[in-house]
Simulated assay, not measured.
Amino acid sequence: MFDRDGSATLVRRGPSGLAGFNEAGAALTLEDGLGVGKVQFLRGTTAAYFSDLFGQAAPADRQSLALDMVEVSWLAPDEWLLTGEEAEVLAMIGRAAVIGDSCLATNLSHARKAFRLSGAGARDRLAAVTPLDVTDAAMAVGDVARAPLSDTGMFIARLPDSEGQPVFRIVVDQTMAAHAVRMLRGPALTPGVDS
Results as ranks from 00 to 15, higher is better:
H179T: 05
G121D: 07
D32V: 10
A8P: 14
L117S: 03
G20I: 09
A19P: 01
P187R: 11
T130W: 12
L159N: 06
T130V: 02
R95T: 01
A97S: 12
A57T: 09
R158W: 07
D133N: 01
L159H: 02
P15Q: 09
P191M: 03
G164P: 04
P15G: 13
L126I: 02
L149W: 02
M139L: 08
P148N: 04
Q63E: 14
S118M: 09
E85G: 01
M176N: 09
G100I: 07
G14A: 15
H179A: 04
I170L: 12
I156Y: 00
L117V: 04
L132A: 01
L81T: 00
F168T: 02
A24H: 14
S7T: 13
A111Q: 09
G192A: 12
F50Y: 14
G55S: 05
S118Q: 13
A178G: 06
R185E: 13
A140T: 14
E163W: 09
G84R: 11
E71N: 10
D136E: 15
L18I: 08
T29A: 10
F2P: 14
S16E: 10
G25S: 06
G142L: 12
L149I: 02
R12Y: 11
H179K: 07
D5E: 14
Q40D: 09
D5A: 10
M1V: 11
T135P: 13
L65A: 05
L149E: 01
A48H: 04
L104N: 03
A27F: 11
V39A: 05
R112I: 00
D101S: 15
D101V: 15
E31T: 08
T83M: 11
V70H: 03
E23H: 07
L126Y: 00
R182L: 10
D151V: 07
A147R: 00
V167D: 09
L132E: 03
A57D: 06
V193A: 10
L159M: 06
C103G: 00
V89P: 01
P15E: 15
R182V: 04
R13C: 13
A48Q: 11
V144E: 12
A127N: 05
S102G: 11
V72M: 02
L67S: 11
L90H: 03
D61S: 14
T46G: 12
D194N: 12
M69R: 08
R185P: 00
C103A: 09
G25A: 04
V39C: 04
I99N: 02
A19F: 06
A96W: 04
T45V: 01
V39N: 05
R146N: 15
S51H: 13
S64E: 08
E85W: 10
Q56V: 15
D3I: 12
L126D: 06
G121A: 14
L149T: 00
G153P: 00
G25C: 04
S102T: 15
M139V: 13
S162A: 12
H110Q: 07
N107I: 04
A188N: 04
R116N: 08
A24W: 01
A127P: 02
E79T: 15
I99K: 04
S64M: 13
S16Y: 02
A97M: 14
M139R: 00
R12P: 03
R43V: 00
D124S: 05
E23V: 10
D78N: 05
A27G: 14
K113H: 10
R146C: 02
S195M: 12
T190N: 11
M154C: 02
E85V: 15
R185I: 07
V181H: 03
T106P: 13
G55F: 08
Q165V: 09
P166T: 06
